[in-house]
Amino acid sequence: MTTTTPHPTAPGTPAPTPRAVLAGIPAYVPKPPAPPAEGPAHRLFLNENPYPPLPSVRETIARAAAEAHHYPTIHPERLTHALARRLDVPPAHLVTGPGSVGIYQQIGQAVLEPGDEVVYAWPSFEAYPIVTRMAGAVPVEVPLADGVHDLDAMAAAVGPRTRAVLLCEPNNPTGTAVGAAALERFLDRVPGDVLVVLDEAYFEFYRSPDAPDGVALHHDRPNLVTLRTFSKAYGLAGMRVGYAVAQAPIAEALRKCAVPCGVGRVAEEAALTALEVEAELLERVERVVAERERTRAGLLGLGWEVLPSETNFLWLPAGSDAERVAGEWERRGLLVRAFPGDGLRVTVGSPEANDLLLTAAKETVPPAR
Rank of each mutant, 00 (worst) to 15 (best):
N171H: 07
D213E: 06
L227M: 08
R221H: 01
A267H: 05
T229Y: 00
E77A: 14
D88W: 07
V215G: 01
A110I: 06
T2L: 15
V215D: 00
D193K: 03
L302M: 06
L335S: 07
R58T: 13
G147A: 08
P6G: 08
W315P: 04
T162A: 02
A135M: 05
R292N: 11
P260R: 09
P249Y: 08
A270H: 01
A201P: 11
L314R: 08
L144V: 05
T73E: 15
R19M: 06
T176R: 14
I61M: 14
E328W: 10
A182L: 03
L44E: 05
P11H: 06
E283D: 15
T4R: 14
V57D: 01
A267R: 03
V140T: 12
E200N: 07
P366G: 03
V336P: 06
R78W: 08
A368E: 14
A267C: 04
V111G: 02
P317V: 08
V365R: 15
P6M: 04
I61H: 03
P50M: 03
P139S: 06
R85W: 11
A338K: 03
E278A: 13
T96F: 06
E283N: 09
A290N: 10
L187V: 05
G97I: 02
P91N: 04
V245G: 09
G242M: 01
V158G: 06
M239E: 14
V190P: 02
W315C: 00
W304S: 05
L227P: 04
A155T: 04
G343Y: 07
N354E: 13
A237K: 13
V365F: 08
Q105N: 13
V194I: 07
L357C: 05
D188E: 10
L112D: 01
V325E: 01
D188K: 04
E117D: 15
I74T: 15
G349C: 02
H218F: 10
P212K: 00
E77M: 12
A135R: 09
N171C: 12
P129L: 02
